[in-house]
Every structure is written in C-alpha cells, then in structure tokens.
Design a protein around this nucleic acid. Structure first.
Length: 272
RNA sequence: GCUGGGAUAGCGAAGUGGUCAAACGCAUCAGACUGUAAAUCUGCCGGCUUCGGCCUUCGUAGGUUCGACUCCUACUCCCAGCA
C-alpha cells in the first residue's frame, strides 16, 4: 500500500463523511485465507494505511494455531519485527510447544484482546488461517459438554465482525507455496528444528507441524534439500486445501484478490 | 551380437488362465470438522451412467482358449550380465 491510493480514499470519505472512526462501532476486521496467501502482510498494510491517513491505529491478533508456540519462528513464518512495521501483534508466542492450548483458550484470549484494543480506541484486526479459531470467535461457539452435532447452518454471524478472505487462483497459490518453501530453507531451519526436537521431542502437538519432520529427515540425509523443499510445499498445499474447504462453507466471507485488497477493505469501512 | 529381467491407470507398484477397471502407496479432486485443528478423519480416483449397470483398457501386432494382464509367436523400447 502506498501513496498512490490516497486520492481514492479521500474520494471515498467524501462520499458520505462516515469515515470517522469509532472504536465500538467499526466491526472487527477479520482476514482469512490459506497459508501463504498474504494475510499478515495485508493486515499490516491496512493498519499502516489507516494510521497514515490519520483514521485510527490498529492492532493485529493472530488466529494461528501454530504461531502461538514460542520458538517456532521460521517453521510457522511468523512476521519479523521489521515486517510488523510498528503495528502491535498479539496471539504470537503465547505458550511453550508442549503446553496445551485449545480453541477455547484462543477465544478467551482473543475476546479479551479485542476488548482491550477497543478500550484503547484502536481497531482490532484478526488475521489467521485456523478456520476453527476464526469461526469459534465469529460464530460465538458455545463450548460445553453437549454431544457433538452437525453445525452446517452457520449463517448467523455477529455483526461485530467483517470477514475478508484472500482469494488466489490455485496455480498461483502453489507457486507462492514453492517460493516460500525455498525461502524457508535458506533460513537456519535446521537450527530451529534441532532446538525444538531436543527441547520438546516429537510427541508435543506443536511438533506435528510438517516442516520439522521434513527438515529432520533432510538433516539425517534421508532426503535431499530439494526434496525437502518440495515436500514442504506439498504439505503446505494440502493444508491450504483443507483451509479452503473450511472457509468455503462460511458464506459470510468476502473474497478478494490480494492486490488492491487493502484498498477494498478500507473502502468497506468508508462506505458501509 | 548373445543371454537374462522388464514393459500394468498421472507416478510407483501388486496381479501370472476366469471372482480384474485391475490390490496397495503417492498425487489429483471433493468433503467433514464446536476444547491440542499446520491436527484428525471420509469419499472419489479409465470413460459413460437414471448409480443398477454399460463400454474401452494392462508396450505393439497376431495366435491358443469357452475365457488372457496372465500362455505362445513376432516386433518395439528399457535395464542387467556376457562377448
């Protein structure tokens, strides 16, 4: 997002003059999408732009079941300090990889953060690919002891949220996955893998992330670096498909392509 | 050039006279999902289908047989050993 879009925003604001930010009135922005779709970057873009325009400050809450674990930085593609561009991030590095952290924990955490952020007069942005986490929040799941049943009719979404999904043509997404996998293996992933294995072993749920077993096999010479990169991209693809299956069911998601996404999201707030 | 082994669906790989559209694995496609979800699980997976079935397949061409992916012959290609 850059200066070239500013005029566009001005026009939008002029439309009905409703762009005055009210922390309690603006729905929480939720950005979903498959892995590597650019959720985090988009959230930061939106936050930067809103801040730059003097509309409001934003804080991002990650809805990612892996980024909550400490130490798993490269493997879960956590944003770096620079990438965050000064936007506060929550929901990252919450617990140790062998700690239990459930959807319910996430909901409680997220609700609390949303309240805190609003109290500060800021806009909460939720960015994440863990469909269950997002749905649990947005559809206000009640976690009790009631026997499981089918919840196919999740039509009623709290108007407190607006959900955007990043849409990619399959082919392009797969290319991004491979590119990202290549980049990942340039970083000291072996070091991270070794540290995680030594510290937590293979039994913790957190270590079930595909990247660590793959990297481990590479380190033991069972597969080549190239194979590891491809395997990782393939596993990511499988994940992406599962995420998409989940999100597809949610009819309230507004699907948009990544380019222009920030602009479209901001326009949503200006014109709603 | 001789000898031995092999050619099976997108890939790998079983099958060695009928019960084979062909096990199994992978990939693909679709789906489920309310306390560890980057997890866990399900269906499909030659073509057509009113989902009962119908049709075309197992390197190529012939042959034997009621019947062949399975046996015989020739050919093509690949691998291994010998010259």
């Amino acid at each position: 997002m850059s200066a070239k879009n500013k005029n566009h925003f001005k026009d939008s604001r002029a439309g009905d003059g409703s762009a005055v930010f009210e922390a309690d009135k603006w729905p929480v922005l939720v950005i979903v999408g498959p892995t590597a779709s650019g959720k985090t970057g988009l959230a930061i873009d939106v936050a930067s732009e809103l801040s730059e325009r003097g509309i409001c400050e934003c804080e991002i809450i990650s809805a990612d079941s892996r980024a909550i674990y400490k130490g798993m930085d490269i493997g879960t593609a956590k944003p770096s300090r620079e990438e965050m561009r000064g936007v506060p991030h929550w929901g990252i590095d919450l617990v140790e990889p062998n700690d239990r952290f459930t959807v319910v924990d996430f909901c409680e955490y997220a609700r609390q953060k949303i309240a805190e952020i609003r109290k500060r007069g800021h806009l909460p942005i939720i960015a994440g690919g863990t469909g269950l986490y997002v749905d649990a929040l947005v559809y206000d799941y009640q976690f009790n002891d009631v026997v499981k049943k089918t919840y196919s009719d999740r039509q009623e979404m709290s108007s407190d949220f607006v959900v955007f999904g990043i849409d990619w043509p399959r082919k392009e997404l797969r290319e991004r996955l491979l590119k990202r996998s290549n980049k990942l293996f340039i970083q000291p992933i072996e070091e991270e893998t070794l540290r995680m294995v030594e510290q937590y072993g293979w039994d913790s749920q957190a270590m079930k992330s595909d990247i660590y077993p793959i990297c481990w096999n590479m380190m033991r010479g069972l597969i080549s670096r190239e194979q590891a990169i491809e395997l990782n991209a393939l596993d990511d693809w499988h994940l992406a498909k599962r995420q998409l299956t989940w999100f597809k069911r949610n009819k309230n998601i507004i699907w948009i392509p990544l380019n222009n996404a920030a602009e479209r999201i901001i326009n949503f707030y200006f014109t709603r």
